[in-house]
Nucleic acid binder design. Structure first.
Length: 246
RNA sequence: GUUCAAAACAU
């Protein structure tokens, strides 16, 4: 059984999800009991493919195999609904987490998933409402902040993006390179290359390494504004930094 | 060992 769990995770990590499914069902039919994390890996795999019903069915069937879904199982499913912008479905799962039977409680990841769903669906009002609910359970982390920064960046509301950045710093949460890259991309897309490079500077000053996504956002901004020579220059800078273009 | 946030991609 231990070897089985190992293989299952390995297959999913190496993009052989189909095989992992066959493996799981083969073992279930022979009466083996997979570990909770094996169920969760497969649930998450289904969700990323958009097979939400299969994921849901698998989750529902876990008790038959002496395994209770935990918050990770539910979070995976919740994220599936959010990824495909099925906010109604997500809310139903949320209800089940909060007041359905009750051996699970929402955690910070649960809220981050909901925020991301609302943000990507353009439902900022709902995102802010949930912020209030979150405070009863947990304290926001760097992912929470970067989700909101990304939402503001995509809306072109750079002022609010910077406010969230400053707010997190005030609260002692260190911005990471995802946070910077989200805001840099917002600046680039809304024609504020100056701010974008300022952030790039702050990033390196705080010894965060700009990665290939950071560079792509900047290079894309420069290209789309016709600054091709600056784009080329930045591209060579990226190579000097030892970052491989993809 | 399993769940959440960032970029680009012509025809």
């Amino acid at each position: 059984p231990y070897t089985f769990n190992k293989s299952l995770h390995h297959l999913i990590r190496s993009n052989c999800g189909d095989l992992s499914l066959k493996l799981l069902f083969h073992f279930l039919s022979r009466g083996y009991t997979p570990h909770l994390s094996s169920f969760n890996s497969v649930i998450s795999y289904f969700c990323k493919l958009g097979h939400l019903n299969s994921a849901q069915n698998l989750l529902n069937s876990m008790p038959k195999f002496n395994c209770s879904p935990d918050i990770v199982s539910y979070n995976s499913l919740l994220d599936g609904y959010c990824r495909f912008l099925n906010i109604r479905g997500a809310c139903l799962i949320m209800k089940r987490i909060c007041c359905g039977g009750g051996n699970v409680r929402p955690d910070l990841v649960t809220f981050n998933i909901m925020f991301n769903g609302f943000c990507k669906a353009g439902m900022e009002g709902a995102a802010f409402m949930y912020m209030g609910v979150m405070w009863k359970y947990c304290i926001p982390n760097v992912v929470t902040h970067s989700t909101f920064i990304d939402m503001f960046s995509k809306m072109g509301n750079l002022d609010m993006g910077f406010r969230v950045l400053n707010g997190m710093r005030r609260d002692g949460i260190l911005p990471n390179s995802v946070v910077f890259t989200s805001l840099i991309d917002g600046c680039c897309k809304f024609g504020n290359m100056g701010e974008a490079f300022q952030l790039y500077g702050e990033m390196t000053e705080s010894s965060l390494l700009p990665n290939v996504v950071t560079y792509t956002a900047l290079i894309d901004g420069l290209c789309k504004q016709g600054m091709l020579e600056r784009a080329e220059f930045l591209f060579s800078k990226m190579l000097e930094d030892g970052i491989r273009p993809n």
